[in-house]
Design a binder for these strands. Structure first.
Lengths: 349, 349
DNA sequence: CTGTTAGCGCGTTCAA
DNA sequence: TTGAACGCGCTAACAG
């Protein structure tokens, strides 16, 4: 392996000084080489320094550099979510992936954390993040979200709020979201054209602003389409598949079959559909079904659900870009960015 | 919002000194309060200091603290994966969630990064991680994995390797994995008992050690069960649903229908099943199907696939615990940890 | 219980 | 093109 690690004694950290000594130059020169300030270093010394860096296996000490330049090259990604498996949601997973990939290209690092709304203020976790900015997905009822938002703002760092329907409250915060309400309207138009008269909407009881927007858009769309549509909403206790199923079963036990079921996301749509199929109710003939998000998992269920496609990965990328330009240019390029969503016809309508 | 942010001038950073001055104590006392060393601080001064901390909105400067104590309280989670959406895989998502939750409880932070095998050594990204240890999921062919492993070892930091079948190469590295081979054997036993004579195994061409283990266990199991089973393996180009479908279609075009199809994970199993259903081939009557992992998404497809359950979340938790005790006690409690897997009967066998 | 001193490793500033 | 001095904010070690 490396040439001289016979013992397991913790080798002393190799510093810029050590490299300087070995290459017989000043520490400053090493620093210039490390940071690519080649204007200040002759080709020959640079080569020599680089050789010593490799030989000694030198790596910069980020805490020292950060302390000096007060820049961490790092952003914190926070999910306020009741579920411990906050990343299992595909939306979240895509956002993180997009964010990470954009930021790592610019040599930045992403620190992830899921946290329950109730613990947010107690927890020192967020305050302990050593980052230059945050990207946050909030959930929970409006007043709780607001309290968290205030804590975040008090951190006094660049902040990207994902999927928040509110306006950016100040210069230091920027909204990145998709047009969820528009998605709801697309679904309403589609269903209205199919003469749907009663709709069941299935959503988690955990309050996600994006899902609220979808439902609001749905209502709005039906209203605009004229016709007299009855919309019932049921709340599943948790985000889980069985929880959504239970909510639908509860509803169906007490109400006539609706003409359509709209899931707050594809998982909920598929859960609802599974019950209809269990009961031999034909989809889409007797009941139409639509979901929301359009991630790959939707392919597992048949018939394929009609949905509205979210660009979650791109949302993450955009958030990353926003933060990067905020870091480089001192301000966000825009206070709000809204990505479009796309209607995707499946076999369930 | 906060009481005095009239201007948008970047407020100067509040340091321990500022708090000390305001509370009329020495910086050291503030430090002791911040770090909970209450033995060294009287109740009264502590209260006073805490009041000033809150009033001035003081937060510790982690780079300074880290520089001083040479401890970052942070770990890096790395996925060597060809897919940019590395977190969309439920296994990975669960691992991250488990790791994050355990570590955040101990006031540690997790930095995530997905990286392509080919870029690993070029990239300065990993070297730039300011962390106390790494948790890594490797993929790719053995020699490539080995090269990466060596780079990682050269970082000279505590290292947890997830899902690697190898033995821990040194004191600083620890293996955390599940018994994938055992899972393969469970599946083989089950299928052998159902008199399966020909098996198609569908795996991604990207080389995941865990999947190799599953297949090896499967072979072993069939061998042990006696009988003369023919096992064919097809490789899907990517990890995607359609890619798996294409691989299965290609196989079926050239071979008679196997008695069973085993997916390297549930997604692959479900993709294979979708083709059989398209063609009106009865599952499980004509072809039996099994998957691997048992995450919730498996519920979307019907019939429900028989599978082997992975405890990915727990794997992440255990990795976190390993690292924490390594940090606190200077050594890993064990060099290898193997979690069991569980057979889960579905409707496809 | 509280204060003082010193220095972690780096990069900026300025002088050579 | 290179070097020396200094200090970023914090805490270990010790002195009071």
């Amino acid at each position: 392996m490396s040439d001289n690690d016979s013992g397991r004694a913790p080798r002393k950290r190799v510093t810029i000084k050590d490299v300087a000594k070995a290459a017989d130059v000043s520490p400053m020169t090493v620093s210039n080489v490390v940071n690519g300030k080649h204007q200040f270093v002759s080709e020959r010394t640079r080569k020599a320094v680089e050789r010593e860096i490799a030989r000694l296996n030198y790596r910069v000490q980020h805490s020292a550099r950060s302390l000096r330049v007060s820049r961490r090259r790092s952003v914190g990604m926070i999910f306020v979510d009741e579920s411990p498996s906050f990343l299992v949601d595909h939306f979240n997973a895509h956002v993180v992936a997009g964010l990470c990939n954009v930021l790592s290209t610019a040599d930045h690092t992403v620190t992830v954390q899921g946290i329950r709304a109730g613990q947010f203020n107690q927890s020192s976790i967020i305050r302990n993040f050593a980052v230059d900015g945050f990207c946050v997905v909030l959930s929970g009822p409006p007043d709780e979200r607001n309290a968290i938002l205030n804590s975040l703002i008090n951190l006094d760092q660049p902040l990207v709020l994902m999927q928040e329907p509110i306006a950016s409250p100040n210069q230091e915060t920027c909204i990145v979201r998709q047009d969820d309400a528009g998605g709801g309207r697309l679904l309403a138009d589609h269903l209205a054209a199919r003469r749907v008269g009663t709709v069941l909407v299935v959503v988690p009881s955990q309050n996600w602003p994006a899902i609220d927007q979808r439902v609001a858009g749905l209502r709005e769309g039906f209203l605009a389409a004229g016709g007299d549509v009855r919309i019932d909403v049921v709340h599943a206790e948790t985000e889980e598949f069985d929880s959504a199923r239970a909510a639908v079963i509860g509803y169906l036990d007490r109400h006539p079959l609706p003409n359509a079921i709209v899931g707050g996301n594809d998982r909920f749509a598929i859960a609802a559909m599974s019950i209809l199929l269990d009961r031999g109710i034909a989809v889409p003939e007797r009941v139409k079904i639509t979901g929301f998000n359009g991630f790959e998992q939707r392919r597992y269920a048949r018939p394929l659900v009609t949905t509205v496609i979210s660009s979650a990965y791109e949302l993450g990328e955009r958030a990353g870009q926003m933060l990067l330009t905020r870091f480089e240019e001192g301000r966000f390029p825009t206070r709000e960015l809204v990505l479009p969503v796309y209607f995707e016809l499946g076999e369930t309508t």
